[in-house]
Amino acid sequence: MAEALPGLTMDMWTEILARLPVKSLMRLRCVCKSWCSLIDSSYFSLLHLQIYNNKPKYAIAMNCDKTAVYSIDTFRKIDEIFKTPFNCEVICCKYGLILMCAFYAITPDEVDEDEMVFHNPCTRKSWSIPRCPYMTWTCWLGFAPSTNDYKVVAFVYDNSSIVVYSSNANLWRIKDRSDAHVRGLLSFEDADEFYCKGALCWLGFEKDKPPGVHNHLVSFDFDSEEFVFVDLPDALKQPGLVKINFVLSESVAIFAMSSHSACIWVLVEDGVDKIKSWRLWYTGDSNSKAHRFLTRGFRTVIFNVEKNTFILSFRSNIFSYNFRSHRIQHLEDYYYSYFGIYMESLVVHNRNQRKILTYHNVNGEESTELVRV
């Protein structure tokens, strides 16, 4: 195929291939050796992640039985891409990788439950990572673009510290308990975290402030493995606000609504020094029905800028909310353990690889189990 269009250089082919879905690329690996080498390279994997997923296209809903992919634009189900192994618990899904905790039966009465496993549903590759050295409170999967490194950061239960796993080094590192780390952990509120530009972000609070009042944005950068703190504008520090954290054009944004008004603030970077400052992006009227609706406390937020709409998950329900018209729509009643943005990824990793095997249980139904090989 490459020889059929001699006017195109390899760089041009690279740009074309980087815009194709993973299923197509897996087939195109068989065209010629040069394409196979390109598609399998870490350089192309990163390029495809940036180009093909330049804006959110898909949402993913996962439970113990199946994994469904939806179009963000129409919220119609596209495919069921993965059946969660019955001996695994999904932790999160990010950058096309599913992070799971695997449970293996050692004896009929003993279970080994501390192994974490990466699975790429597009390439159907799975691999385990070394056991975390501590009992952890919670953990997230992230990506460091400067080193093309997939990482897991875990908050430790009892000693205000964090541990970070690097897939490039295939090991965990215990971070020093600096003042910034302790402050980052103390200001963490579960359920409002989100990702932006290779960082895990959430709204921080101070211990001596009233509940629900946030004073700063906290982010953990997966490149530097450091916490960064940015003060919120005074308008977002007021008590009684309902807030939604999201990403707008690769920038952190916060939607806030009181009983009187609604607004959106965006964190921008100015100048060579990339000084961060907040800018008011939208102001509008409040809505009593929307205000009551948003006080439920939604777990996941996906923003569709073309439609001025948030996709929100609450327990077993998924809703859309238009912040300009205040229209609320129930999209799906789906029992899931995870809901979020889904990206197609070419990440392939052969170290400590595990296989997903299928078998038939006593009822004759097909199931899956993650097994050591």
Rank of each mutant, 00 (worst) to 15 (best):
L200I: 07
V242C: 11
L17P: 00
D270H: 13
L294P: 05
I16N: 08
I244N: 01
V111N: 07
N159A: 13
P121M: 08
W278V: 08
W35E: 00
S325D: 09
I81W: 01
V266F: 01
S258T: 07
N87V: 00
W127V: 07
H349N: 13
Y43A: 08
V164A: 03
K66N: 10
F220E: 01
F118N: 00
R324M: 07
M100L: 15
N322I: 08
I51K: 13
V213G: 01
N352K: 12
D208T: 05
L232G: 00
N54A: 09
C201M: 06
E269T: 09
S146N: 05
S128E: 09
V152Q: 07
H330F: 12
V111G: 04
A18C: 14
C30R: 13
H330Q: 09
R327I: 04
S277T: 13
H119W: 14
P145M: 10
V348T: 11
W140Q: 04
F103Q: 04
D208G: 02
V182E: 10
V117R: 05
V22H: 03
T107L: 10
V362R: 12
S146K: 03
S71F: 15
R27P: 05
I341D: 02
A2R: 14
I356K: 06
W202Y: 15
W127K: 04
T147N: 14
R173A: 09
I311D: 01
R315K: 11
G198W: 14
V153L: 14
S187N: 10
V228E: 08
C196W: 02
T283P: 00
R299E: 14
G340Y: 00
D73K: 06
I106C: 10
W13F: 15
H260A: 08
D221W: 05
S258M: 09
D40H: 07
C139E: 10
C201P: 03
N304Y: 15
S251Y: 00
L232E: 02
L5Y: 07
I311V: 15
Y195R: 08
R315E: 13
T358P: 07
D114H: 09
T300L: 14
E193Q: 14
C263G: 04
L203P: 00
W202D: 00
S37L: 15
A61G: 09
R354D: 12
L236Q: 01
D192F: 15
K94N: 06
V90I: 04
S167Y: 12
V252P: 00
K355G: 06
R351S: 08
A18Q: 08
L346P: 03
Y58R: 09
V301N: 10
E80K: 09
P121G: 06
F227H: 04
M343S: 09
K274R: 13
F314V: 10
E89A: 06
H260C: 05
G212T: 05
C92P: 00
S146E: 06
A61I: 11
V305R: 12
M62I: 13
E369D: 06
S320Y: 13
P130A: 11
F44M: 03
L370N: 02
A235H: 07
N170V: 13
F194C: 09
V153K: 10
M62N: 01
S187G: 10
C92A: 01
M135C: 11
F246E: 03
